[in-house]
Amino acid sequence: MQDSQPNNPLHGIKLATIVEELEAHYGWDGLAERIDINCFKKDPSIKSSLKFLRKTPWARDKVEALYVATFASNNPWVKP
């Protein structure tokens, strides 16, 4: 199943996993510095961030791009 979208580095990775791993790596303050969105600045949580990101494609694109840039060389499942 991993081979069905070989050019998509995020294929098979859930948005929740992306947000959880980025938060663990950078913390909420670090995410807010890198991506200027309120869900990372004001009373951040995984649940509120997921709700916002699922409704806001431009913000989700930024979060996914940060994930690829951060973990592409460290994660065998994420191909640059």
Results as ranks from 00 to 15, higher is better:
residue 1 M to L: 15
residue 2 Q to I: 13
residue 4 S to N: 12
residue 4 S to P: 04
residue 4 S to A: 14
residue 4 S to V: 15
residue 5 Q to A: 14
residue 5 Q to C: 12
residue 6 P to D: 07
residue 7 N to M: 11
residue 8 N to P: 05
residue 8 N to V: 02
residue 8 N to L: 04
residue 8 N to G: 05
residue 9 P to H: 06
residue 9 P to A: 04
residue 10 L to P: 09
residue 10 L to S: 09
residue 10 L to K: 10
residue 11 H to Q: 09
residue 11 H to L: 05
residue 12 G to Y: 05
residue 13 I to M: 03
residue 14 K to D: 08
residue 14 K to V: 00
residue 16 A to S: 11
residue 18 I to R: 04
residue 19 V to P: 01
residue 19 V to L: 10
residue 19 V to C: 02
residue 19 V to E: 01
residue 20 E to K: 14
residue 21 E to Y: 07
residue 21 E to F: 03
residue 21 E to R: 15
residue 21 E to H: 12
residue 22 L to S: 07
residue 22 L to Q: 07
residue 22 L to M: 10
residue 23 E to L: 00
residue 25 H to I: 00
residue 25 H to C: 00
residue 26 Y to H: 10
residue 26 Y to M: 00
residue 27 G to E: 06
residue 28 W to L: 08
residue 28 W to E: 04
residue 29 D to F: 02
residue 29 D to M: 04
residue 30 G to C: 07
residue 30 G to L: 09
residue 32 A to M: 04
residue 32 A to Y: 09
residue 33 E to A: 15
residue 33 E to M: 13
residue 33 E to C: 11
residue 34 R to N: 12
residue 35 I to R: 08
residue 35 I to T: 05
residue 35 I to W: 06
residue 36 D to P: 10
residue 38 N to P: 11
residue 38 N to G: 14
residue 40 F to S: 04
residue 40 F to I: 06
residue 40 F to K: 06
residue 41 K to E: 13
residue 42 K to N: 13
residue 42 K to D: 11
residue 44 P to D: 05
residue 45 S to M: 05
residue 46 I to L: 15
residue 47 K to S: 15
residue 48 S to W: 02
residue 49 S to Y: 00
residue 49 S to R: 01
residue 52 F to R: 11
residue 52 F to H: 13
residue 52 F to I: 09
residue 53 L to M: 09
residue 53 L to P: 02
residue 53 L to Q: 05
residue 54 R to W: 00
residue 54 R to M: 06
residue 55 K to M: 11
residue 56 T to M: 00
residue 56 T to Y: 02
residue 57 P to T: 09
residue 57 P to W: 01
residue 58 W to F: 14
residue 59 A to I: 06
residue 59 A to D: 04
residue 60 R to I: 02
residue 60 R to E: 14
residue 61 D to P: 00
residue 62 K to S: 12
residue 63 V to W: 09
residue 63 V to S: 10
residue 63 V to D: 09
residue 63 V to R: 11
residue 64 E to I: 12
residue 64 E to R: 15
residue 64 E to V: 13
residue 64 E to G: 10
residue 65 A to C: 11
residue 66 L to S: 08
residue 66 L to M: 06
residue 66 L to T: 06
residue 67 Y to P: 05
residue 67 Y to A: 01
residue 67 Y to D: 04
residue 68 V to S: 10
residue 69 A to K: 14
residue 70 T to N: 08
residue 71 F to T: 09
residue 72 A to E: 13
residue 72 A to I: 05
residue 72 A to S: 15
residue 73 S to L: 10
residue 74 N to A: 10
residue 74 N to F: 02
residue 75 N to K: 10
residue 75 N to D: 15
residue 75 N to F: 01
residue 77 W to Q: 05
residue 77 W to L: 04
residue 77 W to Y: 03
residue 78 V to K: 01
residue 78 V to P: 03
residue 78 V to D: 01
residue 78 V to I: 13
residue 79 K to G: 03
